[in-house]
Design a protein around this nucleic acid. Structure first.
Lengths: 121, 121
DNA sequence: TGTGGTACATACAAACATGTAAGTAATGGC
DNA sequence: GCCATTACTTACATGTTTGTATGTACCACA
């Protein structure tokens, strides 16, 4: 996402893992808000301001950054309408929709796993 | 993993997302080396030093941290043998093994997605 | 007495992610 | 002219993760 300096182990690690499709996929979902955004947009396309209202805690800056990253990653499309005040709509791509069933499985795994680890504590 | 300070939005966000099984699951896999470790241990149980050899770039500190986190998350078990020099073996739990098919799907999605975004660039 | 191997731990520093606060452009309505 | 609305942007501060370097306990073996 951000430009990364070319020094030392940080970038070497990146080279080493860049070949892994799984790491590639997970890194797209790792942002602090991306899964929530994905979830909301799965229901319907939404404007910037609508998304902002949905997550009362997110700041405009973070929303902008995460949406931009998700657009670059091919998870969402961004449509600008030349109006004033401006209107911008965000929508899931087909690829992002293909994620849904997989993420549902992960979610149900997470639920089971959570019950287990709770018991031990 | 690390102790987190209780101020401001950081922890509020955490509260807000802590109810999400999917976020819970993804956060277990997000570490820089966890997926690789998971992948190696899927083949067979391994000693600390064996894992170290497998990933030539990882530092001992990072390996320790990630293994500790994965143990706490119930992904692996840690068995210590009272010998000198010490011997410690790491092994996947049943829950971690249930992840495999899901992660395979994610990986193949990542592969397709990567081809797509490559084409656009 | 000294060296070697294993599986860590600790102190410190760099890189990265996120948050806070404030500002911008465009224009329709008052 | 002034204000409001929308979707951002910028500068700066804080929090979190990862990396570097070094040290430690244990005891067998030379």
């Amino acid at each position: 996402m951000a430009t990364r300096k070319l020094n030392s182990t940080y970038s070497r690690n990146e080279q080493c893992m860049i070949g892994c499709d799984l790491t590639f996929a997970i890194s797209m979902l790792g942002g602090r808000w991306k899964l929530l955004i994905l979830d909301k947009l799965a229901q319907r396309k939404m404007r910037f301001s609508e998304l902002k209202k949905e997550f009362s805690y997110i700041t405009e800056r973070m929303l902008t950054l995460q949406l931009k990253a998700m657009e670059q990653d091919g998870l969402i499309t961004r449509t600008v309408y030349a109006e004033v005040p401006p209107r911008v709509e965000y929508e899931l791509t087909d690829m992002a929709r293909e994620l849904e069933p997989i993420l549902n499985q992960l979610s149900s795994w997470g639920n089971r796993q959570r019950r287990l680890t709770r018991q031990q504590v």
